[in-house]
Protein backbone atom coordinates (compact mmCIF):
# COMPACT_ATOMS: atom_id res chain seq x y z
CA UNK A 1 0.00 0.00 0.00
CA UNK A 2 1.00 3.61 -0.50
CA UNK A 3 2.24 5.31 2.67
CA UNK A 4 3.16 8.94 3.05
CA UNK A 5 6.12 9.83 5.22
CA UNK A 6 8.14 12.86 6.08
CA UNK A 7 11.75 11.76 6.30
CA UNK A 8 14.51 14.25 7.00
CA UNK A 9 12.19 17.12 6.11
CA UNK A 10 11.26 15.62 2.76
CA UNK A 11 7.73 14.39 2.05
CA UNK A 12 7.87 11.02 0.37
CA UNK A 13 5.59 8.15 -0.57
CA UNK A 14 6.54 4.52 -0.26
CA UNK A 15 4.78 1.42 -1.49
CA UNK A 16 5.06 -0.96 1.44
CA UNK A 17 2.93 -3.18 3.63
CA UNK A 18 1.98 -1.22 6.79
CA UNK A 19 3.58 -3.87 9.00
CA UNK A 20 6.96 -3.47 7.29
CA UNK A 21 9.38 -2.08 9.89
CA UNK A 22 10.48 1.50 9.38
CA UNK A 23 14.12 0.33 9.36
CA UNK A 24 13.70 -1.68 6.17
CA UNK A 25 11.62 1.02 4.54
CA UNK A 26 14.43 3.47 5.22
CA UNK A 27 17.21 1.13 4.17
CA UNK A 28 15.82 -0.85 1.26
CA UNK A 29 13.06 1.38 -0.16
CA UNK A 30 14.38 4.88 0.57
CA UNK A 31 18.04 3.87 0.28
CA UNK A 32 19.01 5.55 3.53
CA UNK A 33 21.63 3.11 4.80
CA UNK A 34 22.72 4.99 7.90
CA UNK A 35 20.30 3.28 10.30
CA UNK A 36 21.53 -0.21 11.02
CA UNK A 37 20.07 -3.63 11.63
CA UNK A 38 21.47 -5.32 14.70
CA UNK A 39 18.85 -7.50 16.37
CA UNK A 40 15.38 -6.95 14.92
CA UNK A 41 13.88 -6.94 18.42
CA UNK A 42 14.67 -3.50 19.77
CA UNK A 43 17.44 -4.89 21.95
CA UNK A 44 20.52 -3.17 20.57
CA UNK A 45 19.53 0.30 19.38
CA UNK A 46 21.58 0.22 16.16
CA UNK A 47 18.41 1.16 14.24
CA UNK A 48 17.54 4.19 16.41
CA UNK A 49 15.94 7.13 14.59
CA UNK A 50 13.86 10.04 15.80
CA UNK A 51 10.13 10.00 15.21
CA UNK A 52 8.35 13.14 16.32
CA UNK A 53 11.49 14.17 18.19
CA UNK A 54 11.76 10.96 20.22
CA UNK A 55 14.26 8.14 19.84
CA UNK A 56 12.56 4.99 18.55
CA UNK A 57 13.86 1.60 17.48
CA UNK A 58 12.97 1.54 13.82
CA UNK A 59 13.41 -2.25 13.54
CA UNK A 60 10.26 -2.83 15.61
CA UNK A 61 8.26 0.19 14.44
CA UNK A 62 5.79 -0.72 11.68
CA UNK A 63 5.86 1.95 8.99
CA UNK A 64 2.07 2.12 9.12
CA UNK A 65 2.17 3.52 12.66
CA UNK A 66 4.27 6.59 11.85
CA UNK A 67 1.43 8.75 10.53
CA UNK A 68 2.37 12.40 10.17
CA UNK A 69 5.20 12.39 12.71
CA UNK A 70 8.42 13.56 11.09
CA UNK A 71 11.19 10.97 10.89
CA UNK A 72 14.80 12.04 11.34
CA UNK A 73 17.60 9.63 10.55
CA UNK A 74 21.35 10.03 10.96
CA UNK A 75 21.44 11.33 7.37
CA UNK A 76 19.07 14.13 8.32
CA UNK A 77 20.65 15.14 11.62
CA UNK A 78 23.13 17.29 9.75
CA UNK A 79 24.40 15.99 6.43
CA UNK A 80 27.63 17.95 6.93
CA UNK A 81 28.16 16.50 10.38
CA UNK A 82 27.61 19.83 12.13
CA UNK A 83 25.14 18.73 14.81
CA UNK A 84 26.87 19.19 18.18
CA UNK A 85 26.67 15.46 18.84
CA UNK A 86 28.32 14.64 15.53
CA UNK A 87 30.98 17.29 16.11
CA UNK A 88 31.79 15.90 19.54
CA UNK A 89 31.82 12.32 18.21
CA UNK A 90 34.31 13.31 15.56
CA UNK A 91 36.45 15.39 17.93
CA UNK A 92 36.82 12.47 20.33
CA UNK A 93 37.07 9.92 17.52
CA UNK A 94 34.46 7.81 19.28
CA UNK A 95 33.87 5.03 16.74
CA UNK A 96 35.77 1.79 16.56
CA UNK A 97 33.93 -0.42 14.07
CA UNK A 98 31.32 2.33 13.88
CA UNK A 99 28.33 0.12 13.18
CA UNK A 100 26.33 1.06 16.28
CA UNK A 101 27.25 4.73 16.17
CA UNK A 102 24.36 6.06 14.08
CA UNK A 103 22.02 4.64 16.69
CA UNK A 104 24.15 5.97 19.54
CA UNK A 105 24.24 9.43 17.97
CA UNK A 106 20.46 9.49 17.42
CA UNK A 107 19.83 8.43 21.02
CA UNK A 108 22.27 11.07 22.25
CA UNK A 109 20.73 13.77 20.06
CA UNK A 110 17.25 12.88 21.34
CA UNK A 111 18.53 12.95 24.93
CA UNK A 112 20.01 16.43 24.50
CA UNK A 113 16.80 17.73 22.95
CA UNK A 114 14.99 16.99 26.18
CA UNK A 115 17.81 17.28 28.71
CA UNK A 116 20.31 19.98 27.82
CA UNK A 117 22.90 18.96 30.41
CA UNK A 118 22.43 15.31 31.34
CA UNK A 119 24.17 13.83 34.36
CA UNK A 120 26.10 10.58 34.07
CA UNK A 121 23.13 8.65 35.37
CA UNK A 122 20.76 10.38 32.94
CA UNK A 123 23.16 9.41 30.16
CA UNK A 124 23.16 5.84 31.45
CA UNK A 125 19.36 5.77 31.42
CA UNK A 126 19.08 7.20 27.93
CA UNK A 127 21.95 5.27 26.37
CA UNK A 128 21.83 1.81 27.94
CA UNK A 129 19.50 0.59 25.20
CA UNK A 130 22.25 1.16 22.66
CA UNK A 131 24.79 -1.64 22.56
CA UNK A 132 28.38 -1.14 21.49
CA UNK A 133 30.39 -4.31 21.23
CA UNK A 134 33.69 -2.49 20.65
CA UNK A 135 33.63 -0.74 24.00
CA UNK A 136 33.24 2.93 23.08
CA UNK A 137 30.98 3.75 26.04
CA UNK A 138 33.58 5.87 27.85
CA UNK A 139 34.06 8.09 24.84
CA UNK A 140 30.33 8.22 24.10
CA UNK A 141 29.70 9.54 27.61
CA UNK A 142 32.48 12.09 27.22
CA UNK A 143 31.17 13.13 23.80
CA UNK A 144 27.64 13.65 25.12
CA UNK A 145 28.96 15.95 27.85
CA UNK A 146 31.05 17.80 25.28
CA UNK A 147 28.13 18.12 22.87
CA UNK A 148 25.90 19.42 25.68
CA UNK A 149 28.47 22.03 26.59
CA UNK A 150 28.96 23.10 22.97
CA UNK A 151 25.25 23.23 22.15
CA UNK A 152 24.17 25.30 25.15
CA UNK A 153 27.08 26.22 27.41
CA UNK A 154 26.16 25.41 30.97
CA UNK A 155 26.76 28.52 33.07
CA UNK A 156 27.40 26.42 36.16
CA UNK A 157 30.43 24.75 34.57
Amino acid sequence: MSIQLKVNNVATTVDAPPEMPLLWVLRDLLHLKGSKYGCGLGLCGACTVMVGGHAVRSCITPVGTIGTDPVTTIEGLSPEGLHPVQVAWEALDVPQCGYCQAGQIMSAAALLQHTAHPSDSEIDDAMSGNLCRCGTYTRIRQAIHEAAQNATPNPTK
Binding site: H31, L32, K33, G34, S35, K36, Y37, T73, I74, E75, L77, S78, P79, E80, G81, Q86, W89, E90, D93, V94, P95, G98, Y99, Q101, A102, I105
Partner: peptide, 23 residues
Protein backbone atom coordinates in the same frame (compact mmCIF):
# COMPACT_ATOMS: atom_id res chain seq x y z
CA UNK B 1 50.67 11.12 17.07
CA UNK B 2 46.93 10.45 17.25
CA UNK B 3 45.25 10.52 13.87
CA UNK B 4 41.46 10.33 13.67
CA UNK B 5 39.79 7.35 12.06
CA UNK B 6 39.70 7.65 8.29
CA UNK B 7 35.99 6.82 8.19
CA UNK B 8 34.86 8.77 11.25
CA UNK B 9 33.14 11.56 9.30
CA UNK B 10 31.31 9.04 7.13
CA UNK B 11 30.24 7.12 10.23
CA UNK B 12 28.86 10.11 12.12
CA UNK B 13 26.94 11.30 9.06
CA UNK B 14 25.53 7.85 8.24
CA UNK B 15 27.16 7.40 4.85
CA UNK B 16 26.93 3.91 3.30
CA UNK B 17 30.15 2.31 4.41
CA UNK B 18 29.62 -1.19 5.75
CA UNK B 19 29.07 -4.54 4.11
CA UNK B 20 25.36 -4.28 4.82
CA UNK B 21 25.23 -0.91 3.03
CA UNK B 22 26.44 -2.11 -0.37
CA UNK B 23 23.79 -1.45 -3.00
Amino acid sequence: HSQPGVDTRAIVTGKPLFGIDVE
